[in-house]
Every structure is written in C-alpha cells, then in structure tokens.
Nucleic acid binder design. Structure first.
Lengths: 244, 244
DNA sequence: TGAATATTTGGACGATAGTACAAATATGGT
DNA sequence: ACCATATTTGTACTATCGTCCAAATATTCA
C-alpha cells in the first residue's frame, strides 16, 4: 500500500480494544475494500487495528484466511436479507411494481447490510467489486458456493414478471446490473459522498433510485432478435451463473 | 502473481524478438489486464516477454512508467475512433436509431481498438476496468486528462437525443453503462469465450448487442421524480465527470 | 572498419512481503 | 492464589519486490 495521507482513523475508538479479533477484521475490511487485496499488507492491517502483525496470524492463520472470514461474516446476512425482500417482492400484485421491488430487493442489501453500522454493506460490496476485478482465487470459491442459489432465485423471479423475454437476455441484464452496482461503489468521487449522507446516506439513496430505475427499464427492453448473426458455435456463451 | 498454470504463451512468436520494447509492452498489457497491476511483478513481465528484468527498467524507467506508456498507446486511437463514430452517429435522422448509434459509438471501440490484432481493444478495456477498481494513482491522472472531453461529448450527444431527460439522470446511466461494460470484460467465464469468437469475436458481438440494447432502454427510462427525498445537501452529488 | 551509441545482461541493493515461533502477558475458572 | 488456557508481543526467517549499475553485447553510421 502506498497511499494513506494521515495516520488512518480506522483504529480503536477507545485506547484498549475489548476484542482485537473484531478490530482486525474491521480494519482489514476497510483497507481491502479501498486499496484491494494485493495492495494491502498484513502489517498495514495490524497497524490500522492497533494490533501486532503476529496477532493477525494467530487469529486467521493466513492473509487469505482473513479475507475468507470477512466474506463469511457478510454473505450469510446479506443473502438472508435478499431472500426476505425477494419473497416480499414476489407477492406484489402489479407487474411493474413487482419487477421494481425485485430489483430493489437485490440492490438494497448491497448498500446497507444487516446489523452493521453505517456503510457496512457498502464497504463489503465495494470489497466484492474489487475482488471480482482482481480475480481473487479465494473469493471465486466462496462466491460459487454462496451466491449461486440466490442469483438463480432472482433471475427466476424476474423471468416470472417478464415471461416474454428469454432467460438469456435477462441473465445478461442482471449481469449488467451487478457491473453498474459495483462500479458505482468503486468510483471514489461518487462513493465518497455516497457514504456520507445524512445518517444512512441520502446520496446513496439517490444512487439506488437511479440504478433501480435504469435497471427496470433495461430488463423490460425488447429481447434481441434471435435471427441475428446468432450464437454460431457455443450454445453456452451465456453461462447459467450470473449476478455473482 | 501466484497463478499462471503453464509457462505462459505470451512470449515471442519467433525465437528472437526484433523489438524487445514492444514485446515488454505486450506482455505487461496482457498480465496487468489479467491479474491487476499490484499482483504482477516486473520480473513476471520480463519473463513473459523473454527479456531481462533490467531491460524493463531501461525502456520504461519504472513500473508506473510502463503502465503509463500502455495507456498512451491506446487512449489516443480509441478516443479518435470514438469521435469518428460519434460524429457519424449524430448525423442519423431517426431519433431511436441515433441514440442506438451513439451508444454503439461508445461501446464498439472498447471491444476492438484501432489497428490492433484480435482482442486488443478488449484487453485494454479490461485493463482499464481493473485499474479503476484498484484505484491506481497513475491511471487517475491520465484518465482525467484524456477521457474528460470525450465523455462530455457523449453525454451531450445523448442529451440532444433525449432532451426531456435531465442531464443528471443521463450522467448516472452513462456511468452504469461503463460499469456494465467493465464488468462484462472482467468476468472471466464470459470473457474467455468472448475473445475467442470467429475471427473478431462473434460472441463479443453478442455481448455488445445485449449491452447496447439494455443501455438504450435504460437511457430512455422516465427520469426520476425530482420531488423525492431529493439531494438535501450536496448539489454536486453527481459530478460533471462521468463515463471515465 | 572503427568509434559512438543503444541495448541487454546478470547481479546486487535495501525494503518489504507473509508467515512462524518462543517468550511474555492477560484471562477465567476453581 | 493458582493453574491452564488464550492472547499478545517481538523478532526472525526466507522470498520477492522495484530499482540500480557496471560490464558485455548489438547496432548504427561516418
């Protein structure tokens, strides 16, 4: 890591940390989601958490283990919240409203996760964005295990609301949604203001509304003409896995 | 860098490289765009290019200088091609067709750049995607210099075709387009097939069509109700700079 | 050809990486 | 208070990082 102008304000709120393990996790989450996995050293994390480098090894064995634990912490609650919101969304009568609710059910937990303090969900989603770009190996595994079911559920729900549009197109558009979501959180000039809204982020709310509006419209677009240059060879050009 | 199963096929086509500088650039481009800047060492690049680590220093002084040179190589031709296509798109009579042409003018050069061989544009765009995620400092500067004008030109063109939609919304939707584009190129399971289409990539063509279709629909979506929770504090929540 | 220049080579430098480990210290139950 | 266990500390190890440099080699042009 090269940047970091000041002494980093990630440190403990009090002089003594009651639970160093949590402090390390929090510091690692913040640093990884800002600079990426490769650019942050174990020593950086330890210093930000006010801990000794050896402590990190003690609690998480390796740097990969630390990243893995961060994912374990967030994936469960986030997917649970998504399932709840999705179930509620499916009960919406009006088709247009239902589609919007479904998209919102996917997007909202990415911005504000479960019981975390302000910016918790945003931070983790930013982390996921950076990790997907860096092509992290550890993450690829946990993603495949954790997000596959949820993703399929969302595509299914969208397909139910838009039966006339081929699944193929919906998978692509869901893919685009995730890309837009990631990029929005990764772009600093927006994110900086995003996380500093009033309390839980008014500006983040605006970003969500823009994203939902654009996505709903994209999903409803007429499907691609199937009699085009067409998938000449690979029928699996659009894989089953999406929104991960 | 940790991965790389085989001996890497980036090397020279012949046994002796007529221009080692170019070989180093090509190898660096490939490795950076695959693993990110931080995960690739100068020695990795040298080995992939069949060169000596010292040669890299000789030609580009520093690792940052190497990255900078890659950007210098691509930004010019890419933006020139975009300007050409945009100028042509603005002359399209039908409004719907024009909007689609404008979006295509933005997306196409990102997939196949100027005179490069197959996958050249794709590779560079993938590099840009990873760099934006890693928040690379060197890149931020060159981006601000190079892409600002082009981006504004595109937003302007879109705004001319959709005068009833506030610029604010269009900036957001352009932002989402770039995010979707980046993520599409960064996601490996898609990209792998993407670059191996027939000749210039039939599957890449399909991805482009899906992206254009979705984006046009998103751009045309009705604007957000301006009487919402509203931008309570920051009027600059949506900065002027977008599509970068 | 020979001199001037451009490039490549191999090795070295200090800095920092991830991880390991023994000693020191804190903690909790009895 | 005592002991067993959990945690923290300081340090050390090896590996690799970006960069530098003098010598060796290739290239170019008068």
């Amino acid at each position: 890591m090269v940047r970091k102008p000041a002494k980093s304000n990630v440190k403990a709120t009090s002089t003594r940390k009651p639970n160093m393990r949590e402090a390390i996790l929090a510091a690692a989450e913040e640093l990884f989601s800002t600079y990426g996995f490769n650019a942050v050293s174990v020593r950086d994390i330890a210093q930000a958490a006010g801990a000794n480098p050896g402590s990190v090894t003690y609690h998480f064995k390796t740097k990969d283990g630390l990243l893995l634990e961060i994912y374990r912490r967030h994936c469960g609650p986030m997917n649970r919240r998504r399932s709840e919101l999705l179930a509620a969304a499916r009960r919406v009568r009006d088709l247009q409203d239902r589609l919007e609710a479904i998209v919102r059910a996917y997007v909202l937990p990415a911005f504000s996760s479960g019981s975390d303090l302000a910016g918790g969900g945003t931070r983790f989603t930013r982390l996921r964005a950076i990790m997907s770009a860096e092509g992290n190996e550890v993450v690829r595994k946990i993603i495949a295990q954790t997000f596959d079911d949820t993703s399929h559920a969302f595509i299914d729900a969208i397909h139910d609301s838009l039966p006339h549009i081929p699944r193929t197109d919906l998978v692509w558009r869901g893919h685009f949604l995730l890309g837009a979501l990631y990029y929005t959180l990764v772009t600093p000039e927006r994110v900086s203001r995003l996380s500093r809204g009033s309390a839980d982020g008014t500006d983040a709310g605006h970003a969500i509304e823009e994203l939902v509006r654009a996505t709903v419209a994209a999903l409803q677009a007429p499907p691609l003409d199937p009699a085009m240059p067409a998938p000449r060879k690979a029928p699996g050009a659009v894989p089953g896995r999406a929104l991960t």
